[in-house]
């Protein structure tokens, strides 16, 4: 597939749609302040956001929730490895090994 020069315009616009939300409050600083209650609440944003991206990815297969799919079991192995040991590579090894092991068993 070939793309024309408009691809660069798309990149720049996605870049703006990324940098402006990121810079918003950091650049505005003291001129706009969020109430401290809201700030404490916002500490939960990263955990909620990461889970909101990960969980549908491992729970949903072909449009419906599947609690026995290989990706979910592999994700469980990665969670266990991350929770039990500090080695940062282990979750990757555990997750990939379980994913491929189950696929081999499942044919």
């Amino acid at each position: 597939m070939n793309y024309d020069a408009s691809l660069w315009l798309i990149f720049i616009l996605i870049g703006l749609a990324t940098t402006l939300p990121r810079a918003s409050f950091i650049v505005l600083g003291n001129r706009v302040a969020l109430p401290s209650v809201l700030q404490r609440a916002l500490r939960y944003a990263p955990a909620a956001a990461l889970a909101a991206i990960v969980m549908p990815d491992v729970l949903v297969v072909a449009g419906s929730v599947d609690l026995l799919n290989p990706k979910l079991v592999a994700a469980g192995a990665a969670v266990a490895a991350a929770a039990l040991w500090r080695n940062p590579w282990l979750p990757f090894i555990a997750g990939m090994a379980v994913l491929h092991g189950l696929r081999l068993l499942g044919g």
């Binding site: 798309i10 749609a17 990324t18 939300p21 990121r22 600083g29 700030q39 956001a49």
Partner: peptide, 21 residues
């Protein structure tokens, strides 16, 4: 494409506000 990018990046407004102080 842009609406999708913005939806995926909205969390950064929240992060930006939290870390701004």
């Amino acid at each position: 494409i842009l609406a999708t990018a913005l939806a995926l990046n909205l969390r950064f407004v929240i992060f930006s506000a939290a870390i701004a102080p």
